[in-house]
Design a binder for these strands. Structure first.
Lengths: 218, 218
DNA sequence: AATTTATTTTAGGTTAGTCTAAAAATTAAT
DNA sequence: ATTAATTTTTAGACTAACCTAAAATAAATT
């Protein structure tokens, strides 16, 4: 059965949403994630259900089937391997690889994926700190918590960023925040959930939104 | 103006056919090259003419415009850079890279192309000995002649193969014929234009078709 | 419980890229 | 120079992936 790039993208979006909350994924959530009209999503859900890649009950939301889950996992694996390639081998900055990987992830060749994996030294995490599932679809989970959940006085090392948007990553660059940077929580401001943190030598205030998107090993 | 992968493929096919004979490219030739119905070609030619990528006169065949030529050149450049990457960096055999490069060539990013070029050391020829146009679209032409045009007694080094089909390349592997191999023409058989040649230590008879697809520097 | 609001689906339409079969134009052959 | 053969185009149809607007269903509120 051949899966189109558009179908793969829907499966990936469903996977991503399902990861955050453990309940059937809603049509509107998918439409928002993919920047499409809800009607287009309904169309596609029917096709995906037809192909047994999701379980779909009208008005009730969807869930990935085992087959759908596997396709999404392979797609994420390819995406993150390509991002690693672009940064480690071609020297791209981390804020410029997401869009490119969105194209490269659709290249169909298991051999290519596994050779690329080997060429990169079987990496476990991508340039944004996200885990790369292995050839069997197994995930590396790492002990890490959101910076927004850390207490004043706690120290941590930046292990992952939860948002790959170029603007966000460029902002982190400006702050001197790269993966593995040391962060110390100096003070929490309950008013707006912002925090004062120490990055290297420099103290900065980070908004709640930024803190929610930074993960640390403590 | 955005060019779709399908449009790119048509431009590449036109380029390839025009390379062989210097006259307007016929609809049927394109249809044959692309394994599509002639009617589909006519449809696409109208679209390409609309976009000013070809000059098209009904029933008269087509020619690439400067813009169309540039797109085809970049596409071939990307195709051959990816093939080089797959062989040199990922260790693919030369008979397995064509189909993959057909996918990879459509990745849209000038930055990626130039970084890949640099990563590979600005190669001038791909794994099949075909020239790779540089970032300005300039071609490396090399002094070489078809084995089928060589005379008995002549010696040469294999510089390029004119057919990327896996079956042909595997046959060459069997014969011990890799790029840069030394070939000596022992005898020509006028009856069917086959030749007896020396490859390394081994004498073999090659059909006319094979000889036409092998190029040598003498 | 009835009504309002939000969500989802259906209906109907568009574009790109393909197809087959029939018609038109060109080229070759008698 | 007609006729026959070949090539090309048109006509009409299909699928995937999208859209807007309207209808249907579910959830929330009074």
């Amino acid at each position: 059965m051949l899966i189109t790039p558009a179908e793969e993208n829907y499966l990936k979006a469903i996977f991503k949403i399902a990861e955050q909350e453990d309940k059937p994924v809603q049509t509107n959530a998918i439409a928002h994630e993919m920047n499409t009209a809800a009607a287009s999503v309904t169309d596609m859900l029917k096709r995906l259900a037809e192909k047994q890649l999701i379980t779909y009950e009208k008005y009730r939301g969807v869930q990935l089937s085992p087959a759908g889950n596997q396709i999404a996992t392979v797609l994420i694996r390819k995406h993150r391997l390509w991002e690693t390639f672009l940064v480690d081998k071609l020297g791209f900055p981390w804020d410029q690889v997401h869009e490119l990987a969105e194209q490269l992830e659709h290249i169909q060749s298991d051999t290519l994926t596994s050779r690329l994996d080997q060429f990169l030294g079987f990496p476990s995490f991508d340039p944004h700190g996200d885990p790369i599932p292995d050839a069997q679809g197994r995930w590396n989970r790492r002990a890490q918590i959101a910076l927004s959940d850390m207490q004043a006085g706690q120290k941590g090392k930046l292990t992952a960023v939860a948002d790959d948007a170029a603007l966000f990553l460029q902002y982190l660059d400006q702050l001197g925040l790269a993966l593995h940077a040391e962060i110390t929580v100096l003070e929490r401001f309950p008013f707006d959930q912002s925090m004062k943190v120490l990055i290297g030598e420099k103290a900065t205030v980070l908004s709640e939104k930024v803190c929610q998107n930074l993960y640390c090993a403590v």
